[in-house]
């Protein structure tokens, strides 16, 4: 198993999670290579968020094992909501991970300012979270996740609450941020939007609605970042259709899990 850890950014091996009063999730196998972008799709309740929390070490396994980089700040996490501290300004919010790790305050604040500049918020350092739009708050949240220069970035439906224009812009920016870093961080991205998965990721894994197992692992065509107008490209449309079919199949399981909450 030792060789596995050296060649991947994170991995789940036969991981099972049991919650009281619910069918268990898993066993799940998932390997994330260094620097790759993986999307995770599945029905509501299939365990998408659980997989992210397992990869972050925020959730205990009932069975199986989790491999992840050691050390604080090796993993960044972006939640569904921006999850900023309302009582602190944006710069303090972004400096938090560094300060918790004992980085001197001035140094932490300088690096936070740089991270905010990289997401286009360099002029809003003193703003409070409530003064930001949803898209800007999500950018600040992204800056906070990147400020420690992690090798693994976990995103839990971060753009679900944003309008489609802001969402598309943030996806382009995420690609640019990812490409600008050396080494590139691995990204695991949970979404229930099939187009978003194909566009953003290099491959997409589909979780079974009933068990949370990985039922399909589909590569996205083309290279990152995406060329202009790629959404109307035939290869994109075909990949979206293929993924939508797989997702529908994952939800047709006899458990009777419905397709609610799943946007194609």
């Amino acid at each position: 198993m030792a060789d596995t850890t050296s060649t991947c950014a994170a991995a789940l091996r036969q991981v099972v999670v049991r919650y009281p009063g619910r069918p268990p999730i898993g066993p799940v196998d998932l390997t994330v290579a260094p620097g790759e972008i993986v999307a995770v799709v599945g029905a509501s309740g299939a365990g998408k968020s659980t997989i992210l929390r397992l990869l972050a070490g925020l959730e205990a396994t009932s069975d199986g094992s989790v491999f992840r980089g050691d050390g604080r700040g090796r993993t960044g996490f972006v939640f569904q909501n921006a999850t900023l501290m309302p009582w602190a300004n944006i710069q303090s919010n972004v400096a938090l991970p560094l300060e918790l790790a004992g980085v001197p305050r001035d140094d932490a604040r300088r690096r936070a300012a740089e991270a905010l500049a990289a997401v286009g918020l360099g002029d809003r350092l003193a703003a409070r979270p409530r003064q930001l739009s949803g898209g800007m708050a999500m950018r600040a949240s992204l800056a906070r996740a990147l400020v420690t220069e992690p090798d693994l970035l976990l995103l839990d439906e971060p753009f679900a609450a944003l309008d489609s224009v802001t969402r598309r812009r943030l996806i382009e920016d995420l690609h640019a941020l990812w490409a600008s870093r050396t080494p590139r961080p691995a990204i695991v991205f949970v979404t229930h939007d099939v187009e978003e998965a194909v566009y953003l990721a290099e491959r997409t894994v589909v979780l079974d609605a009933a068990s949370g197992r990985v039922t399909a692992d589909l590569p996205s065509p083309g290279a990152l970042p995406r060329p202009d107008g790629w959404r109307s490209d035939r290869s994109f449309r075909e990949a979206v259709e293929r993924l939508a079919d797989e997702l529908a199949r994952s939800m047709a399981a006899p458990s009777g899990a419905g397709p609610e909450g799943v946007a194609a």
Binding site: R53, A56, G57, L58, R72, G73, T75, F77, F79, Q80, N81, T83, M85, W87, A88, L96, P97, E99, L100, A101, T148
Partner: peptide, 24 residues
């Protein structure tokens, strides 16, 4: 989720109290 964030970055009990729970 902020509590989880403090978990993720290995915050001490004191850091969690001063930076998160007391302001909240």
């Amino acid at each position: 989720d902020l509590e989880r964030l403090f978990d993720l970055y290995g915050a001490s009990a004191l850091q969690r109290l001063i930076r998160l729970r007391l302001p909240a």
